[in-house]
């Protein structure tokens, strides 16, 4: 039986790789700086649409972290995202008009780029509103982490999504280009996450946070997944299956310890709930290009018509990674 399952997983992985291979036709190369990628560089892969306002801070944040090269896929933005990225020397850019939904929400595209350019590199796959923090990230760059992961024999690193939100209506403060989004969205839910194991892919399935609390209290099963494995020492036969929630081969999903100890892990601070969120929701209701017929966006829209405040008395104000560690959201494991 396990052999059958094993083989089924192999088929799924091959299929995902085949779909990634097919999806290469969707992508047209606009700017190729990949020749500048050095052997030890940590790379970042990102798909975006109309995120011009977020890009300056995003690039600054990850450059300071030590990301050496960015691989962007622009899903037909009609703001100035493309032209902005074309000015950056550490960015390679692809453009596509194809359907985000049909590309498994960008996964095929990202799998393809990773396969082609990231083999043998530590690769961070994030959205433009996701900001990685890891133990010691205020004092150590990302290659300190990846060197340590290498020496520990680890191939993947978990960083769960933490939804950040402002106090008061989410459109009360206007986000300015280049601004740290967590000056506005500085609150989060510290201890309402629901975890179960996915026996098929071995990954943990985490739900919770403000989205479950406010948007999906009556339908928790459909609350968005918060588990993510965004940092992987990529090999060309790896494939993300659903966003960056899980991968194949399944061993990459074993980012947690089952014998009582803690493995090192980080978090993706999610700067989704800024004033731009309302426009995005409106647009998405038209486009219906997101997961499960944009179920999430429908729920957001309904709730936002009633109340735009995600904050509650028990919300926690973000300070730094050490706070997340004490709260038990991330762990240093045996990194010291």
């Amino acid at each position: 039986m396990s052999r059958v399952l094993h083989y089924r997983m192999r088929l799924r992985r091959k299929r995902a790789l085949w779909q990634a291979f097919r999806a290469r036709h969707d992508l047209s190369l606009l700017q190729d700086n990949t020749a500048k990628i050095g052997a030890d560089d940590v790379l970042l892969v990102c798909t975006l649409r109309n995120e011009r306002i977020r890009l300056p801070y995003f690039l600054k944040y990850y450059r300071e972290m030590g990301i050496s090269h960015f691989l962007f896929i622009d899903n037909d933005s009609n703001d100035a995202s493309r032209s902005y990225l074309m000015q950056q020397e550490d960015v390679s850019l692809w453009h596509t008009k194809a359907s985000y939904k049909k590309a498994a929400f960008g996964v095929h595209w990202m799998n393809w780029l990773s396969r082609k350019y990231c083999h043998g590199h530590w690769t961070l796959t994030v959205d433009v509103d996701e900001f990685l923090v890891f133990p010691f990230s205020d004092t150590r760059p990302i290659d300190a982490l990846t060197n340590w992961l290498d020496s520990s024999g680890r191939r993947s690193f978990s960083a769960m999504l933490i939804d950040m939100y402002p106090k008061g209506p989410i459109d009360a403060q206007v986000y300015q280009e280049g601004q740290n989004p967590f000056e506005i969205a500085e609150w989060f839910d510290s201890g309402n996450y629901m975890i179960s194991m996915n026996p098929e892919y071995y990954n943990l399935w985490i739900q919770g946070g403000p989205r479950a609390r406010v948007f999906f209290p009556e339908d928790p099963y459909n609350a968005p997944s918060m588990n993510k494995i965004p940092l992987v020492k990529w090999r060309r036969d790896y494939a993300y299956m659903q966003s960056t929630h899980m991968l194949l081969p399944r061993g990459l999903n074993l980012v947690y310890e089952t014998k009582g100890g803690e493995k090192a892990s980080g978090a993706l601070l999610h700067a989704k709930f800024l004033h731009t969120f309302l426009e995005k929701t409106e647009e998405e209701l038209e486009r219906r290009e997101h997961y499960a017929d944009s179920r999430e966006f429908v729920a957001y829209h309904k709730q936002m018509e009633k109340d735009r405040d995600l904050w509650c008395k028990w919300s926690e104000k973000y300070i730094n990674w050490r706070q997340l560690e004490i709260l038990g959201l991330i762990s240093k494991g045996n990194w010291a």
């Binding site: 978990s158 769960m160 975890i195 943990l204 980012v255 009582g260 892990s265 762990s331 494991g333």
Partner: peptide, 9 residues
Amino acid sequence: LYMQSRMPG
């Protein structure tokens, strides 16, 4: 503690 990198069996 039950979290993303600790899930005791």
